[in-house]
């Protein structure tokens, strides 16, 4: 498999409001393959949002390299091309919707890059269908639920026909229903449209859906692996201020008390099965 994103020794230093230099990213190296679903977890201030913003050149490395679809993000000429390849969905659904009608908002991206009107129409219809919002095409965004708004935001990114979507805590402001809407939509896009997904979240049950989890702390990648591998490290996750899925926690506790359980239990079914054995 070919790598869509290649990050080498990425550093990002910025000056905060008090004039101190802060190293938000400190030597991050990471490859993301085409079609992969990667979740990034970490406490506040661990550098995960900063990392995300490097992927479509909203931030540029102060040291190291970030290569997206073969293009260096530091090269100015690649800027708009990179942003077409990598779309970005942010935390607050209200602050990323530009237009007062859903379909007009979805059209915003393709309009910016000069797509012909007929094709914009097709792209908008396809994007809305992909996130299940076709019925709301003519609605006003401020009257939609949080989950619906966030799906509109995803459609707005999809209309640019990107290879990769980066979602920066897209569910942090949503209720449980909205959260499952978003996770479901993102999974579907990854499976059916082969879109590469980088998904930043605080919610472990969402991270569990990914192919690979990156755990960050202090601007570095602390651990990475499959959900089974990561959630086996209960102590390390707690030390990072993160939670573990309930079943993984229970498996860990029971193992501590002498119950023989294999590694890699992360959901209720697996735990129950092992306990019934």
């Amino acid at each position: 498999m070919q790598n869509l994103i290649e990050i080498k020794n990425l550093e990002h230093v910025y000056t905060d409001t008090d004039g101190n230099e802060v190293k938000a990213l400190d030597g991050v190296s990471l490859d993301i393959a085409r079609g992969e679903f990667v979740a990034v977890i970490g406490a506040n201030g661990s550098g995960k949002s900063t990392l995300a913003r490097h992927l479509n050149a909203l931030l540029l490395p102060t040291a190291g390299k970030c290569i997206v679809a073969g293009m260096d993000t530091a090269d100015d000429d690649n800027l708009w091309n990179i942003r077409q390849h990598v779309g970005m969905v942010f935390q607050n659904p209200d602050n990323q919707i530009v237009a007062a009608v859903v379909e007009e908002d979805v059209a915003f991206g393709p309009e910016n890059i000069g797509v012909p009107p007929q094709e914009i129409r097709t792209r908008v219809d396809n994007a809305l269908a992909a996130v299940g919002m076709t019925d709301y095409a003519k609605h006003a965004p401020h009257l939609l639920s949080g989950g619906q708004k966030q799906r509109v935001a995803i459609a707005g990114v999809l209309a640019l026909e990107p290879d990769c979507i980066v979602l920066d805590e897209p569910t942090a402001m949503l209720d449980p229903r909205g959260r499952s809407e978003i996770v479901g939509t993102v999974k579907k896009l990854n499976r059916e449209k082969k879109i590469t997904v980088v998904y930043i979240t605080h919610y472990m049950e969402e991270a569990m859906q990914a192919d690979r989890i990156i755990a960050m702390e202090g601007g570095r990648i602390k651990m990475q692996g499959t959900p089974k591998e990561i959630f086996a490290c209960v102590e390390e996750l707690h030390a990072m201020g993160l939670e573990t899925p309930l079943a993984a926690q229970a498996a860990y506790d029971l193992r501590q008390k002498g119950v023989k359980l294999p590694q890699g239990i992360i959901d209720d079914e697996e735990l129950t099965e092992e306990l019934c054995r």
Binding site: T272, E273, C276
Partner: peptide, 14 residues
């Protein structure tokens, strides 16, 4: 979640 886990265990005969 902790109630769900209990339900899951019950459903499998624990």
């Amino acid at each position: 979640p902790v109630y769900k886990l209990a339900d899951c265990l019950n459903a499998h005969g624990l």
